[in-house]
Design a protein around this nucleic acid. Structure first.
Lengths: 207, 207
DNA sequence: GTAATAATCACCTGAAAGGGTGATTTTAAG
DNA sequence: CTTAAAATCACCCTTTCAGGTGATTATTAC
């Protein structure tokens, strides 16, 4: 018997998964939560075997919650859950100890398979999620670069449309310095002009 | 008796809404579809009163499908459905004839209220959706500019990091022409350099 | 304390972008 | 058929960007 708990801020999704799982003999509905706090509250006095966790929630998101849960309850398997097929998120979830990732547009069969696989200690990726992850890793060795505070600041100003001289005036620096930071940004992102820089920054949610 | 049909590519969502509505006496489940084509197929021989329509689907998306449905079956009320609270989409759905918009993280009560309101010929916005719409209209006079196919094409290439000469070579145009398009893009977006252009394009999901 | 990183400043050069103006040619829509 | 919009091409000039190289001064980590 696998006790399944779900954290998702969409009642429709909770209801949908509940409904899909309710006739499964080897699956027991442990409970549900609509945000990270109420999830953590639940596990103070209860437990579960597999937690289905939405990636995007108000307040603490799935990525963070995943890390906290794994630290406190390392025996619980976490299965990421999202409508998006965003490689970056999948990667972050996995780095934080999730055992798999499944998209909400998966079939009932796929959902069950994911739960069983994860419960048995395996790793599960729904087809599209796997593709998204691979596509992500291919498309961007991206590895969002480590930016210094100054670089982040200047990146934002560049994105706003300010030129080097304008930025220099704005934050009281030499235009040469601003230009150095700008060039470092290009180097760190591995791109060769501002257009590509801003595009990547946007995709990495840095803006 | 209100016959409700749903179009959504997420089985979990279909199941969830089905489950939420199945005990409502004045609501009848007309059917479901997981994409635009199968939805249009259904309405050839059947009908419904209210259609819950996901905004983001593979192939034709909700915005387009909404327009097609409204043209063919003007008597059917359409209620937009999404996990996102993106003002831009809400606006487009409404422009294409939807009668309202509701987020998937709404409660059962809100869902029922939305269905009834729309069925009675009213307009319904779930709280957050309304806020998102207002926030969108405030934040960006953005009004995503109408771009010609050529402009879209060149915008993408600029975002990829290609320079005017490179783009010219790639699509067999004079560099002067590419530059003209580029300047038109800056004008249409109301920005003064590439950085701001790409940032806006990214925010408007044009990349 | 010392090594590594961040932050700062400087200059040279050529390429690219941005502002302005104007024009011809398709193509689509009425 | 006519009008509007899109697409095409051209050249002026100034600013900004990008590549390369090198250097000094905090700040932080070990």
């Amino acid at each position: 018997m696998i006790r399944v708990f779900i954290v998702d801020d969409h009642p429709v999704v909770i209801e949908g998964i509940h409904s899909l799982l309710q006739n499964e003999k080897d699956i027991e509905w442990a409970g549900q939560a609509m945000n990270a706090a109420s999830c953590l509250g639940f596990f103070v006095n209860h437990t579960a075997d597999v937690v289905l966790m939405d990636i995007s929630m108000p307040g603490m998101d799935g990525v963070e919650l995943c890390a906290v849960m794994q630290e406190k309850y390392p025996g619980i398997f976490i299965l990421g859950l999202s409508t998006f097929n965003q490689g970056l998120y999948i990667k972050k979830m996995m780095e934080n100890g999730a055992s798999g990732y499944i998209l909400k547009n998966s079939s009932k069969e796929e959902l069950l398979k994911a739960i069983h696989t994860v419960h048995d200690g395996g790793i599960f990726f729904s087809g599209e999620a796997g593709e998204a992850l691979i596509a992500y890793q291919k498309s961007s060795k991206a590895e969002l670069p480590e930016l210094s505070p100054r670089e982040k600041e200047i990146l934002l100003l560049i994105a706003e449309g300010y030129t080097n001289p304008q930025i220099a005036e704005k934050i009281f620096l030499s235009p040469f310095t601003v230009d150095s930071h700008r060039k470092n940004l290009l180097a760190k992102f591995g791109v060769k002009n501002t257009a590509a820089l801003i595009k990547m920054a946007a995709q990495l949610q840095l803006l």
